[in-house]
């Protein structure tokens, strides 16, 4: 116990788990991610089961534009890297470095969102809507849930970043920052499966 207190006054390697509350928070968040995994799996299962039910509307083949998806993927993957770099800066207690990387992360995330909104608008034009068929419903449910996660992530990271700027990097803000970074990586993991199982598989058949 005493040892831990001492090390936190110096510079613990992992500020996020330096306190008891921090440990609870990180563990709790991992458990939450476990639950999210199942949630997305159910959406994936539903999508894969219903993806051929386009009822005369555009099919996956006709609809998806891989170039756009590749760009979105690149944005999100890079944001995952910048997010982890921000965490390294955080554990070095470098506020400026951390905020810089976080802002880049947020911008990349916003870019991704803009692309997704553009994409959805395009699809609606093509006659592929939430209500047009079971394929439409399951597609927007899956990709839209992911998009909602990205949106929430952006708001959340912004909030916590502003807290950190005002109150510094300490044992109170560090777990929050760390956990939001985990969340961001998780969103990226889900996207890996979306581009594989939705977009690429949609082109295969």
């Amino acid at each position: 116990m005493a040892n831990k207190v001492e090390s936190s006054t110096e510079m613990p390697n992992h500020l996020e788990t330096a306190t008891f509350e921090g440990k609870n928070k990180v563990l709790g968040f991992w458990l939450f991610l476990g639950a999210e995994t199942v949630l997305f799996a159910c959406l994936f299962g539903t999508y894969l089961a219903l993806r051929n039910q386009s009822l005369g509307g555009p099919t996956t083949h006709e609809l998806f534009d891989l170039k756009l998806v590749a760009l979105a993927t690149a944005l999100l993957l890079t944001s995952s890297l910048t997010s982890v770099l921000a965490m390294i800066k955080m554990n070095q207690r470098s506020m400026k470095g951390m905020v810089t990387w976080l802002v880049i992360t947020l911008l990349l995330g916003l870019g991704f969102l803009v692309l997704e909104i553009y994409e959805f608008q395009h699809y609606v034009h093509e006659g592929h809507t939430f209500m047009s068929s079971a394929f439409g419903s399951s597609f927007y449910a899956l990709v839209g849930t992911h998009g909602a996660h990205v949106t929430f992530g952006i708001i959340w990271i912004t909030t916590i970043m502003s807290q950190a700027i005002r109150r510094g990097i300490n044992t109170d803000t560090a777990p929050k920052l760390f956990v939001s970074s985990l969340y961001w990586h998780f969103i990226d993991v889900v996207w890996v499966f979306i581009f594989t199982l939705v977009y690429l598989l949609g082109k295969v058949g």
Binding site: L33, G34, A35, T37, V38, F40, A41, C42, F44, G45, T46, L48, A49
Partner: peptide, 14 residues
């Protein structure tokens, strides 16, 4: 374990 449940569920539905 989450991934395990996820895979079983998704494959089951599919």
């Amino acid at each position: 374990f989450g991934i395990f449940v996820a895979v079983i569920s998704a494959v089951g539905i599919l």
